[in-house]
Amino acid sequence: MTGLTVVPVPGFGAEDVVVATHGPDEGCCFTGTEDGSVWRVSHDLRRIDRVAATGGRPLGIEHHPEGWLLVCDAHRGLLRVEPATGRVDVLTDSVDGARLLVTNNAAIAADGTIWFSDSSTVHPIEEWRQDFARDTRTGRLLRRDPDGRVAVVLEGLAFANGVALAADESFVTVAESGGRTVVRHWLAGERAGTTDLLVDDLPGYPDNTARGSDGLVWVTIASPALAAVRLLHRGPRWLRVAATSVPERLQPQPRRVVHVQAFDDDGALVRDVRRPATDFHMVTGVREHEGRVWLGSLLEAAIAVTDL
């Protein structure tokens, strides 16, 4: 990565980013912040507008073909957000009668099916460090059909996070932040219904993922792998609980880095883009669009942009 332009936004924790590919907002980038706001950043980076307030904590964000935004709100579930009016509607906030606890990231299929992750059934988003260190493996991949029905597709994931579809929608992927993998679930062909790994042993902890305009699956590396976390995950549960019971400043901390990778549909690494984290760090959102890469961060009051 050569140059990086940091764009401040009027809110902390711009966790994900998406670029509108059509309609009146074409070329603009959207992000959501900790205070519940959804922001639109113009393509030239000169104008930032607050287009909606979810009343929760927006994480993953997608641009629907019909022009509205699909927002994964950790507190409120899957939301439909209209940038033009600010209207917010809940698409779903539960599955099998139980509330979703950490709705995190999503991908939209051509037929309107929404694939999305629920990171934990134990810890809310404010306790992501505890869930991560304790390795609860209660994350899930879910599917919302066009008729509104919601089903659990995969369970037992180590903090389920970023979701992306194959270009031909033959499979869906979900990142395991705690496992440092990208899990692949086949939807079509001879392997339909089976699950394997698109990527194993990532160099760090993946967060959001997205398919770029280049056809690749882009994966954020929020932090390089930490030896202390590896030891915790191998240890007994009492040790993992004890490690997250001490003050947060004494717990293992993410290392500062700006790092994203891109893979083809066979899991081959195509791009490895990184730089020192001097003025931006902990990349949790990524969107490649026409050679420009937009980045979001859970721990920054800003997004960032670089050109490949």
Rank of each mutant, 00 (worst) to 15 (best):
A84Q: 14
A84L: 12
G86M: 10
R87V: 13
V88Y: 08
D89C: 01
T92W: 04
T92P: 06
D93K: 07
D93L: 00
V95I: 13
D96F: 06
G97F: 10
A98K: 15
A98M: 11
L100W: 04
T103N: 11
T103W: 03
T103H: 02
T103I: 04
T103Y: 01
A106G: 07
I108M: 02
A110E: 14
A110C: 06
D111L: 07
T113E: 11
W115L: 04
S117H: 08
S119N: 08
S119Y: 03
S120Q: 08
T121C: 02
T121N: 09
V122I: 14
E127Q: 15
E127K: 11
W128E: 12
R129Y: 13
R129P: 00
Q130V: 08
Q130T: 14
Q130Y: 06
D131S: 11
R137D: 01
T138G: 13
G139R: 02
R140N: 02
L142W: 04
R143Y: 02
R144L: 13
R144T: 05
D145Q: 12
P146A: 09
G148N: 10
G148E: 09
G148T: 09
R149M: 09
R149A: 15
R149Y: 00
V152A: 11
V153E: 14
L154Q: 12
L157T: 00
L157R: 01
A158M: 07
A160W: 02
N161V: 07
N161S: 05
A164D: 13
